[in-house]
């Protein structure tokens, strides 16, 4: 019987092999799609996910990769270069790159922005009201993905770790992301019954001062907050070690809305969409545009379906604040003491 089955498989392979091979050979459009990738702070997981998607799907692409190195000035050159190269699609990483290269939805200047070439964006914290007027449709030649977990889901996640009476937060008053987060948390706190203590970092000469972070955390400790919420804030992302170490020193658990503070620093846990997954979803939308010839305006802007709960085990052990079994069962545990990340 088994021999018969293997024979059948072999026969199928014999027949199907040449057929599929023929189909590939007959495809004249082996010419790869050219995608211009504009990055903000180097190659990371979202870019990798984007690239891997095409490889996995067998879609031939030629990637033109440019890194702005967090320099806003370079973005103007990128716009000109993408236009002159006549690429098929532009991929933009992060809020700054996206807003500078594609323009805000109410101000798409044809000269300084890319308007004719279709574009996909990723890792934009607040696309709504920024680059697009609605998540259903951009109304123009772009689409993209969001990567932030809805605020209510984040709060529920914190609550499922420990009941919450007072939530602390340090933020950069100069970043719109953080201001939005403060507003949202305040209103959710009203309905769910917790207080938000949100302290802006000190600003000197138009720039936030990293040195003030530890002071603010000490103030939060005095206010006896149960948790510190780390918003998806560029300034805090850069200074994440300062913030998470200060919180750890005071014995305050931290929850991060982005993966970096948990994965590469000392935030205790987080609820995020992994950058890699977000990159793959963005590539899927690029495929819709390039291969299936859909208009970018018809493709809604959304987030991955699957939420990743990240738990930083060394921090948990240090705080002695252990996660509930149910949450632990769902979480991706980061345990660098063992030098590896353990997925469930």
């Amino acid at each position: 019987m088994r021999r018969l089955a293997s024979l059948a498989v072999m026969l199928c392979a014999l027949f199907l092999g040449p057929m599929t091979g023929g189909a590939w050979a007959a495809e004249p459009a082996a010419k790869p799609y050219r995608i211009y990738m504009a990055l903000w702070r180097g190659w990371e997981d979202a870019a990798q996910g984007f690239k891997d998607y095409f490889a996995n799907q067998g879609i031939p692409v030629e990637l033109i990769i440019r890194d702005a190195g967090q320099d806003k000035e370079k973005l103007k050159e990128f716009v000109a270069e993408a236009k002159s190269l006549q690429v098929d699609l532009v991929f933009t990483w992060g809020t700054t790159v996206t807003e500078e290269m594609l323009g805000r939805y109410d101000d798409p200047d044809k000269q300084s922005h890319i308007t004719k070439i279709p574009a996909v964006f990723a890792i934009v914290s607040q696309p709504l009201g920024g680059v697009v007027p609605s998540l259903v449709s951009s109304g123009r030649n772009i689409t993209g993905t969001t990567y932030l977990v809805p605020m209510e889901t984040q709060v529920n996640l914190i609550q499922s770790y420990r009941p919450l009476k007072r939530l602390g937060m340090v933020f950069n008053p100069l970043e719109r992301n953080s201001q939005v987060a403060v507003e949202q948390l305040t209103s959710i706190g009203h309905s769910m019954g917790f207080d938000l203590v949100a302290l802006p970092v000190d600003v000197a000469e138009g720039k936030p001062r990293p040195a003030s972070i530890a002071l603010k955390v000490a103030e939060l400790k005095a206010a006896r907050v149960d948790f510190i919420y780390i918003p998806p804030d560029t300034f805090l992302n850069i200074n994440r070690d300062l913030l998470t170490q200060a919180a750890l020193d005071h014995g305050i658990p931290t929850f991060a809305a982005a993966e970096n503070p948990v994965v590469t620093s000392k935030a205790m846990f987080g609820g995020v969409y992994r950058y890699y997954t977000v990159g793959q979803l963005t590539a899927y939308k690029a495929e819709q545009i390039l291969v299936h010839k859909m208009a970018p305006g018809d493709i809604p802007i959304d987030a991955p379906k699957r939420l990743s709960v990240l738990i930083n085990m060394p921090v948990v052990r240090q705080l002695g604040l252990f996660p509930p079994m149910k949450l632990l069962g769902l979480a991706e545990v980061i345990d660098r003491a063992e030098g590896k990340e353990i997925k469930p």
């Binding site: 085990m313 052990r317 002695g320 079994m325 149910k326 069962g329």
Partner: peptide, 22 residues
């Protein structure tokens, strides 16, 4: 298996959290 995993992460057996919901 779940409990052993938690304990292997360094959580003492008597400090396991949320066993009711589990």
């Amino acid at each position: 298996a779940s409990i052993e995993r938690a304990v292997n992460f360094g959580i003492p057996l008597d400090k396991l959290e949320g066993m009711g919901e589990f």
